[in-house]
């Protein structure tokens, strides 16, 4: 159950996790605020003096939006254009922040300094790892997509009205599964990089991290899906279930605060996931990591694996793509 201990370590142990979470949340908040600002002004111009638009408060009045789109198409065009900038900025800023979060998780001190230093030092390698993985998983995704497209083509001849429904779930599930494999590769690649990556180089780090996610397929995916589920639950609660709505200023304020609280928890979970990946990776890379990094702490006692956990198919001496130097640590 090393993965469970890693989750505990990632979420609750070590310094700097709250700082990381606050930075991630605040960055998202600021980015969204910058992107939304022109729209905010536009919404005031469109709706402040139009009582008919009040239906929008209760989730209705979509014809008002159509009216606004037909009468002020430039507004919506400009608003949509902001999305592109938002995505680009999020990618750049996200790589930088995650470089800091992973670096902070790999160091004992885990303070401000290690965050910023790690972010600056690792942002380029993280970008490279991300791109390598993107290429790999886009190729995989296209291959899977061809099979799914063929299956969808076959639906046309089917009498069964439930068939597309089933296929829809299969497509969604497959898509999410491939996306998760991509996320695993990126995350464990980044964790590996901050632990021993500089020693083995970018290419090997990429290949071995991908292999690692498959060799430890079940625990790696259990961890990822647990964090995915936690984030989804938080957002569903914040956006749909607990939201008091917008009918009054008080309700709007409560909704806005609740949403930001949700995003903050999601950011905390993101940081926790990164730290879990580092803790889990460290467990298998500890000897090399220790020699590679002087500032990496010794594995805490409660994270030390026990021999009984070696699976029946795992023979000591068979390393994860050759890098697992100590069979006793498996």
């Amino acid at each position: 159950m090393e993965w469970a201990r890693a989750i505990g370590t990632g979420l609750f142990r070590g310094r700097g996790k709250t700082l990381g979470a606050l930075l991630v949340w605040f960055s998202g908040f600021i980015l969204a605020t910058i992107a939304i600002n022109p729209m905010r002004r536009g919404f005031h111009v469109l709706f402040d003096k139009a009582p008919a638009s009040k239906a929008l408060l209760g989730g209705g009045g979509l014809d008002m939006l159509i009216n606004s789109a037909m009468k002020q198409p430039a507004f919506w065009a400009a608003a949509n254009a902001m999305l592109l900038y938002l995505v680009l900025l999020s990618v750049v800023l996200g790589l930088f922040l995650m470089a800091g979060v992973y670096a902070q998780a790999s160091e004992k001190s885990g303070g401000w300094r290690s965050f910023w230093r790690g972010a600056a030092a690792n942002v380029l390698p993280f970008s490279a790892l991300f791109l390598f993985n993107l290429v790999l998983w886009v190729i995989v995704g296209v291959g899977v997509g061809v099979f799914l497209a063929a299956a969808w083509h076959g639906v046309h001849g089917s009498m069964d009205p439930a068939k597309p429904w089933h296929l829809f779930w299969i497509t969604l599930g497959t898509g999410l599964f491939v996306l998760n494999l991509f996320r695993n590769s990126v995350g464990y690649g980044q964790a590996r990089w901050v632990l021993i990556g500089r020693e083995e180089g970018m290419g090997l780090c990429f290949v071995r991290s991908v292999v690692f996610t498959f060799r430890r397929f079940v625990p790696v995916n259990v961890v990822t899906w647990l964090f995915n589920a936690a984030r989804a639950i938080v957002m569903v609660l914040a956006v749909f279930i607990l939201s008091p709505g917008y009918e009054s200023t008080g309700r709007w304020f409560a909704t806005a605060v609740l949403l930001q609280a949700g995003f903050l928890v999601v950011a905390y979970l993101r940081v926790g996931e990164a730290r879990t990946q580092v803790a889990y990776s460290r467990h298998f890379l500890a000897p090399r990591a220790e020699t590679a990094r002087t500032d990496v702490p010794v594995v805490p006692k409660d994270e030390t694996p026990v021999l009984q956990e070696i699976g029946p198919g795992e023979v000591p001496g068979q390393s994860d793509a050759g890098e697992d130097l100590s069979p006793a640590m498996r």
Binding site: S27, G28, L95, R270
Partner: peptide
Amino acid sequence: LYQTITAILFNVL
């Protein structure tokens, strides 16, 4: 919506 997009990207990166 925008913050969700950002959060998703931060989670993927």
